[in-house]
Nucleic acid binder design. Structure first.
Length: 521
RNA sequence: GCCCCCAUCGUCUAGUGGCCUAGGACAUAGCCCUCUCACGGCUAAGACAGGGGUUCGAGUCCCCUUGGGGGUACCA
């Protein structure tokens, strides 16, 4: 066997599905570990859609995640083309060889007739195994018949015997050949069927490891028979367990993804600037797709780590596995054989762990687009503005788990006036004695020698000490007065970011709002 | 119906016959730290689907049942 070559063969559906990425990732890891090649092949045999448009989101998704391909769309390679729709003549050619060699035969039965037979068998509680009448016809005669009148071409399945494959994840799996009906490999119009096309492609592309979703396990005996008939070398098979819906044993389906677009999900998307209409049009924006996480500002490295750990583990305790370690340590033998539920909470946590380790400068770069989209920053931020963003991001610290979190923590620093939460204002500012304290402290702010975080903190502590009051009282009041909200970076960071004049202006503004003029005045 | 696959805390997992009184992580709850939130620290609760075997000994091996999933296509 030559160098390790793995592949992922998505249909151009217009989005990159989470479950698919996991399978692709395992393939990619295997290839990278062995210094082999990872191939992207597009299964577009039945696609009537605009291919370029439906393919782009998939390529974008992989690129965003850093999963690169050595051969495939846009990069090409020695086995081009990498679109099944452009490879049909190869399938026809291969089918003709099987016909000549007596491994295939034409079948003139109509689908409707077969359907009836199937139903009859079902009623009789007997397995339905289709065997066409031309199974015994000589290859020469079959070829003559086929030339005379095109028909569906069926593969001859042995009458008896066991088809056995050794799956790298499942172990040995066997099927009775007598229970497998002769499958169609070519339609009367010459279009190949999946089970046939896949084998031709995998064989021609010298794929050494077919790592795919477990739902393909049942296709494998037929494919094994095609390899055998072709006289081609069989690749290693590894069927990875499917990814289930959160908290469910149901497969995370590509169909019916709309149900993941819950009100909460919609709210998250709208918080980062998507309108309800845009979400409707971009029907791929939901938690089952990669694009969703990109839009919400998840770190791609976090998503890759999470997906890699879903169904595979390094040992009994490691959760955070840098990509290089994952490449180095990945093995099919440690892939679980039971299906796994996708857990958005854990993904969120992993993404946060990666964010903690991201250099500040990178956070700043990645956060800027979210601020721009929200209209808080213009398209060409000045050096001063970038500096301000940096200060804000630094002040956010570990609170920033997603890039979009900059909106919940940073917005008050970009608005002209804070958006005051009424409740917070009445709870923290419009409170017995607090307005006077704020006024006094505000006056102190004016006199500070500088406006740094330590100076501010010292000033406040001294002030509270002097007044014999709890520091929290003033701190909470200050935070609400200057940012409008109760949660966020440390209050001294907030004051520092705003600067002296703006801090004081906002305190005055809050006091105005919180203390309505006394009646009669 | 028939064929194939799967089965440890709510979820992801460790476990390859004695190291298991079943370990870790997310989520949950409580406490601590603390200017809020987040981070961090500590603690709690929480699982071997059921039944038979095999064995001195079973989460681990075998069988059955149950439950999930996939296939049974001129879908992929």
């Amino acid at each position: 066997m030559g160098p390790v070559r793995t592949r992922f063969a998505p249909s151009p559906t217009g989005y990159l599905h989470i479950g698919g990425v996991r399978t692709a990732l395992f393939n990619w890891l295997l290839a990278r570990q062995a210094g082999g090649q990872f191939i992207l092949r597009i299964d577009d045999t039945d696609s009537e859609r605009n291919r370029a448009e439906a393919l782009q989101p998939i390529l974008d998704g992989f690129r965003w995640l850093g999963i690169d391909w050595d051969e495939g769309p846009e990069v090409n390679g020695p086995c081009a083309p990498y679109f099944q729709s452009q490879r049909n003549e190869r399938y026809v050619q291969a089918a003709m060889i099987l016909l000549e060699k007596g491994h295939a035969y034409p079948c003139y039965r109509l689908p409707a007739e077969l359907q009836k037979e199937r139903e009859a068998a079902e009623k009789a509680k007997k397995p339905y195994v289709h065997r066409g009448e031309h199974r015994q016809t000589s290859p020469e005669e079959c070829l003559r018949l086929y030339r005379e009148k095109k028909a569906a071409l069926r593969l001859k399945v042995p009458d008896e015997g066991v088809i056995s494959i050794s799956d790298r994840i499942r172990g040995v799996v066997e099927w009775q050949a007598s229970l497998i009906g002769d499958p169609i490999i070519l339609r009367p119009d010459g279009r190949a069927l999946y089970n046939f096309a896949t084998v031709i492609d995998d064989s021609e592309m010298k794929i050494t490891h077919v790592v795919r979703a477990a739902e393909h396990l049942s296709n494998t005996p037929v494919q094994a028979l095609v390899y055998r008939a072709l006289g081609a070398e069989m690749p290693e098979f590894a069927h990875v367990p499917v990814v289930n819906e959160p908290n469910s044993k149901k497969k995370l389906s590509k169909r019916d993804m709309k149900k993941f677009l819950t009100p909460e999900v919609r709210a998250k998307l709208m918080a980062v600037g998507w309108t309800a209409e845009a979400i409707e049009i971009r029907d791929d924006l939901n938690p089952a797709t990669v694009a969703f996480y990109k839009e919400l500002g998840y770190l791609p490295s976090g998503l890759v780590n999470y997906l890699g750990r879903l169904g595979w583990s390094l040992d009994d305790k490691t959760e955070i596995i840098p990509l290089a370690d994952m490449i180095h340590n990945f093995s099919l033998e440690r892939v679980n054989n039971s299906s796994a539920s996708f857990d958005p909470d854990k993904l969120f946590w992993v993404a946060g762990e990666y964010m903690k380790n991201l250099p500040l400068s990178e956070k700043v770069e990645k956060v800027i687009p979210f601020l721009q989209r929200a209209g808080l920053l213009n398209a060409q931020p000045s050096e001063a503005e970038r500096k301000k963003v940096q200060t804000i991001v630094a002040a956010c610290g570990d609170r920033l788990k997603l890039f979009s979190d900059v909106l919940s923590y940073g917005t008050p620093f970009f608005l002209k006036d804070p958006l005051y939460e009424t409740k917070a204002l009445s709870k923290r500012v419009a409170k017995e004695g607090v307005p006077d304290l704020l006024r006094e402290f505000s006056a102190k702010l004016r006199q500070l020698p500088d406006y740094s975080v330590p100076t501010l903190e010292q000033a406040l502590r001294d002030f509270c000490q002097e007044k014999q009051i709890n520091t929290g009282l003033v701190i909470h009041a200050l935070r609400v007065a200057t940012t409008g909200i109760e949660v966020g970076p440390g209050v001294f960071d907030c004051l520092h970011i705003l600067g002296r004049e703006e801090s004081i202006r906002r305190i005055d503004l809050a006091l105005e709002l919180a203390t309505p003029p006394a009646p009669g005045q």
